[in-house]
């Protein structure tokens, strides 16, 4: 039983740790399917975390914090669009600029408002999201297998965890089953074809970026108002880049991107587990090595196993209509 509950807790943490990755990967899918590179997932996630924490603190309601985070992230996406869609700037440069801006901005604003560089006050129970315990979770816990599955794995997560996994089929449905999705995919593949079909390429890309902003805000709010009760400096910790890698590994497809996110989440959960554990024959593995595991995995997967990850054909290219 010890072993089973170990597994259950590992799966439980995998689901929780993967949550921001899933939101970010879905956000990335919208931007990149429309032909706009989005390295700024990292920066936007960080900004969302900051805004959600500050918003919740002042407004006393985490949902209002989330709403603010959404507004700010959509604005940042629009900024990216303004630079790289309207003014045809280099998309990577625009993203890097946003990322750098936000690392500095969050630290500075926190210092100005709360007197601590890069730290916001701790949120109380009313100001943050709490774990949701599904009905009868306690009563069913003792039923073998099903009880563990329901009570220890499915129950007891923050609202974002459920939303993240619900977002995947929703994204799939939008991208592949609606006319908006058809246009979205077309604009990332051959914007000229979209233009000659009488659809405005720029509007399509802005719409995609707006959705991108909404989704990434959830990832940030999850970090600062659910799993943690405050914002701290650079708390996104590369998750935006990891999500981008997962999205590429998943070939810009929601289902496979989800699997990649879970894989990254799992290695992260595993490394937390393995810290300080004595392995037979090997002994204790250095913490640094274990912590590097998800990142090493990223490199290995991207380099070796992606195969022909065929990106949207027009990705990274601003649409130039006239010569």
């Amino acid at each position: 039983m010890e072993f089973l509950s170990d597994i259950a807790s590992l799966i439980n943490s995998t689901l929780r740790i993967s949550t921001p990755l899933v939101f970010a990967a879905m956000a990335g899918i919208f931007a990149e399917r429309s032909g706009v590179i989005d390295f700024s997932l990292e920066g936007k996630m960080l900004m969302a975390a900051f805004v959600a924490a500050v918003g919740s603190y002042y407004l006393g309601n985490p949902w209002l914090g989330l709403l603010l985070a959404i507004i700010v992230c959509v604005c940042l996406s629009m900024l990216h669009g303004f630079a790289s869609v309207t003014h045809k700037g280099d998309q990577v440069v625009s993203c890097v600029a946003i990322n750098i801006l936000i690392i500095g901005l969050t630290t500075a604003l926190a210092a100005a408002w709360f007197g601590q560089a890069g730290l916001t006050p701790t949120l109380n129970e009313d100001q943050r999201f709490l774990e949701i315990h599904l009905p009868f979770a306690d009563a069913l816990r003792d039923i073998p297998v099903i009880g563990t599955l329901y009570s220890d794995i499915l129950s007891g997560h923050y609202v974002f965890v459920y939303l993240a996994y619900l977002s995947v089929p929703l994204v799939f449905w939008i991208v592949f089953k609606t006319s908006f999705g058809l246009r979205l995919r077309a604009v990332g593949e051959n914007p000229s074809a979209v233009d000659t079909a009488g659809i405005n390429v720029f509007t399509m890309r802005y719409k995609a970026l707006a959705i991108n902003g909404v989704l990434i805000a959830f990832a940030g709010a999850h970090l600062s108002t659910a799993v943690n009760a405050n914002f701290f400096r650079e708390m996104s910790a590369g998750r935006g880049y990891l999500a981008l890698a997962a999205m590429i590994f998943g070939k810009w497809h929601p289902k496979t991107a989800l699997i990649a996110c879970l894989l990254f989440g799992f290695t992260d959960a595993l490394q937390i587990r393995l810290q300080g554990v004595e392995l037979p024959a090997i002994g204790e593995i250095p913490v640094q090595l274990i912590q590097a595991l998800p990142y090493i995995l990223t490199v290995v997967l991207l380099a070796g196993f992606v195969g022909k990850a065929i990106a949207p054909n027009a990705i990274g290219q601003p649409y130039i209509k006239e010569r």
């Binding site: 089953k177 609606t178 006319s179 908006f180 058809l182 246009r183 995919r185 077309a186 593949e189 051959n190 000229s192 074809a193 979209v194 000659t196 079909a197 009488g198 659809i199 054909n313």
Partner: peptide, 26 residues
Amino acid sequence: HQHFMLVENFTVLENIILGFEGETVF
């Protein structure tokens, strides 16, 4: 057009209805 305005990894049908889908959900 001289260079065809087609999305290469779409089907013929998808290319033709693009922009004139007539419905939000297929």
